[in-house]
Nucleic acid binder design. Structure first.
Lengths: 188, 188
DNA sequence: GTCTATATAGCGATAGAC
DNA sequence: GTCTATCGCTATATAGAC
């Protein structure tokens, strides 16, 4: 019971932080906001996370786990092209959220790379897994330039997320995702 | 003389802010840092900019002017494809800086869109001009889907800037730029 | 016009009662 | 394990001497 409540609060704090970091960014978000959104008393946050940095680290780890689960889900698809298109098509479902607040992972990486501290470059842990998976799919397609193609695909996705957010226009993201699907077909 | 000094200080403050916003982000940068880097006494900043928001606005306007000058420079090139490739090739020169701190405009837009206030969506003023110019070039190439192509090109650039920054690898940006040049040729 | 000193406010983090 | 009170620091912004 005690452990369960503890786990529940920790998870709620991470979930609240993840949402707020996405909506407003890490630096703007205060621990008081995280506590409030997570339904946890303000001063109690420090029992679960000794510093704010530790909370950010937990959110990064959360994204790593989510990315791995997402990619593992696509591995049931039969062809590499189908798996790549599965990843790409997934952005259609979140186009509206992305237009409102940008890509949660892309935004986090951009912010973490711009301040010093232990978290600088932590975004590699998330994007490194995704890019390795994408590269592997292109390699299975027999492409020698698999890494460049992986970067091209991820660039197209991340760039359109930034533009959709800048112009507050979800169709920029969804149209670009469909464009990338056809591009994958042209390579297969 | 007085007006010249005043203009010089204002410009120095904007230049300092532009650099610091790029390297660390807007929120992390303090007005004290801007004043120090611009060689202007700390308290004197408020004579030139009533609020920090006003300083950010000035930096945005600076980028708008730079973008217009950059695009006007490419207009001397004869064909639309050459102009588009000129814009794309320009990223080769700044690949290292982009790998270190991301795209200055992309990073600024991402940050401005995530906080409220008068500056929310100010990035449209910069990206709107660039995307309109790119779209016009594709239209001159006779493409009906000029807007989608413009977004695809800018997405590829901005996304590769984000990834180059995340992985601290300038070749991600430069290789992607060359890839996009060939892509432009394939459309012309 | 220039600069110093300071008001005001909010944050991360800690100490310690319960 | 939980929560309150508060410390110490830093930021924006202002008041006012020069």
């Amino acid at each position: 019971m005690t452990d369960l409540r503890r786990a529940g609060k920790r998870e709620r704090l991470i979930a609240a932080a993840r949402t707020l970091f996405h909506e407003q960014g890490v630096h703007v978000t205060t621990l008081a906001e995280v506590a409030q959104r997570g339904d946890v008393p303000v001063g109690n946050v420090y029992y679960y996370f000794k510093t704010k940095e530790e909370l950010v680290r937990a959110v990064v780890d959360e994204y790593v786990g989510q990315a791995e689960a997402l990619l593992a889900g696509f591995d049931t698809l039969r062809t590499p092209a189908a798996r790549l298109k599965g990843l790409t098509r997934g952005w259609l479902d979140v186009a509206d959220t992305v237009a409102d607040h940008g890509c949660p992972v892309g935004g986090l990486c951009a912010e973490l790379n711009r301040c010093d501290g232990a978290l600088r470059g932590a975004g590699v842990e998330i994007f490194g897994r995704i890019s390795a998976w994408v590269e592997a799919q292109f390699r299975q397609l027999g492409r020698r330039d698999a890494r460049d193609l992986a970067m091209a695909l991820l660039s197209g996705i991340q760039g359109s997320a930034l533009l959709a957010n800048t112009f507050s226009d979800a169709t920029i993201m969804s149209r670009q995702a469909r464009y990338l699907e056809r591009w994958i077909d042209s390579l297969a």
